[in-house]
Amino acid sequence: MSAMTHVQTTLNGEAVEFLCEPRQSLLEVLRETLGLTGAKEGCNNGNCGACNVLIDGALVNACLVLAVEVQGRTLTTIEGIAPPGGLHPLQRQFLEHAALQCGFCTPGFIVAAKALLDRTPRPSELEVRQWLAGNLCRCTGYDRIVRAVLAAAEEAQT
């Protein structure tokens, strides 16, 4: 087994340190080392978006990032989306719109949608569909997901 690397990062607002092998993906370290299992492994090659997290606010597939790359960076995962004691508007609207069935892709969609709304607070339906084209959902046909994101954008404005 290869030697471990020491990594310091900011994870959901808290300073975190961990040891990892250079070959380990960020997804593996989040799930196996740090116990944050909200990011899911659907494909492990960047096709499904179920492992979406934010690095310095940028949307990435955690399965395509090596854990050593997050040294000194700021990470946000699904576990860090909600404000203390509440839900993020996206989380609330996903529930209101029944935008999930099995829920497995949901963390990835919510993280991805947050990245969209952070840069485009009032996206059109087309912009939502373009932005979320990297996230696969097999249960819903996307209708309710797109509606939930549009509603969350509206909620954030009011």
Binding site: L95, A98, T106
Partner: peptide
């Protein structure tokens, strides 16, 4: 009627435990 689903909060916050999440 359309109540919110009872497992909803766990599923939108990443807390819901799927099979591969077990350790």
């Amino acid at each position: 009627s359309t109540p919110l689903r009872q497992d909803g909060v766990d599923k939108v916050t990443g807390r819901a435990q799927y099979g591969a999440d077990i350790r």
